[in-house]
Design a binder for these strands. Structure first.
Ligand SMILES: [Zn+2]
Ligand SMILES: [Zn+2]
Ligand SMILES: [Zn+2]
Ligand SMILES: [Zn+2]
Lengths: 155, 155
DNA sequence: TTTTATTTGATTTTTATTCTCAATTAAAAG
DNA sequence: CTTTTAATTGAGAATAAAAATCAAATAAAA
């Protein structure tokens, strides 16, 4: 079952229509693995082939996609929400985010490693975990190298 | 060293003045462990004893506190930032958040348990971790009980 | 006490997101 | 393939959190 088929099915199950607008937004997010687009960015990409589609529709569509679990809404404290595919076909595909405090780049970590913690929480708090988001803030490898180099040059 | 002394020191080191407004906002956040207040909520609490303090000052102060690592900015996707003390005196005090999808309540988990994952990330990605945020979404114990009860009653 | 740069309150401005509503359209029914 | 119907859309207005502005106030250095 392809992502698109899952998408169609979820729309149907929730009683929503498959419109051109929804298909276009889906395609952009689905074909940009690893990107974390804002509504405005998606709007710009949509405009290229579909200048008739309005920004309000982008916002509405993303909200709908979030509701039927087609996308995840991410927050990197940069003044807007960002979105990425929910890779439903592959549970192990969930990932964490590394946010570089220097260059602002976002990296993805495919390994989950939260089983212990989740087990503890479910047992200790009786909290039934459905999902999680984990972000690490720090300095990426590239920026670390650059810092070293600058240090050397000033010595 | 008390939280307040650390607060004064950090203001000083960063070259900022200790004003009444800053002291009042600090006191409210510092004396409300476990709470996650929005700027508006802090504004309401500040008003009780200091109706002369304006909302813009609350926003400015929280931004400053975030910069000098007095507070953390939290995001629970409810339309505003929320803030809590950075418990600097005790590193092990960092905690994760449990967000109940039913009742919206926020719970805190004091256990970190991310050492393995952090070690893996530092080694595998060369990413130097300074901080992290981890949220779990699910159903809290209370809401789980309520669901069970409702199920029984309808049987 | 005087000086000076910082900070503040009040207000306006900005900007992401939502709302409104008439016109359009997907898809169910015939 | 039409007709019907309710959902959806585009354009623009409305909302609301947060930031910017600026003259007046004030902390802290001299
Ligand atoms: Zn991602
Ligand atoms: Zn970097
Ligand atoms: Zn907390
Ligand atoms: Zn609950």
């Amino acid at each position: 079952m392809t992502n698109f088929e899952v998408f169609k099915e979820r729309l149907n199950n929730a009683g929503f229509k498959l419109t051109t607008q929804r298909r276009v937004v889906f395609d952009i997010i689905n074909s940009n693995e690893g990107k974390h687009y804002s509504p405005e960015e998606i709007y710009e990409l949509v405009k290229v082939d579909h200048p008739e589609i309005g920004l309000a529709t982008i916002y509405r569509t993303l909200k709908l996609f979030e509701k039927i679990a087609i996308v995840y809404r991410l927050n990197f404290n940069d003044g807007c929400s960002r979105f990425e595919m929910n890779h439903f076909e592959d549970k192990s595909h969930r990932h964490h985010h590394l946010v570089c405090l220097d260059c602002g780049k976002i990296f993805e970590v495919k390994l989950d490693l939260l089983q212990d913690l989740e087990g503890y929480i479910e047992k200790e708090y009786g909290f039934e975990i459905h999902n999680h988001t984990l972000k690490f803030y720090g300095v990426c490898n590239e920026c670390k190298q650059r810092r070293k180099k600058c240090k050397k040059e000033t010595t």
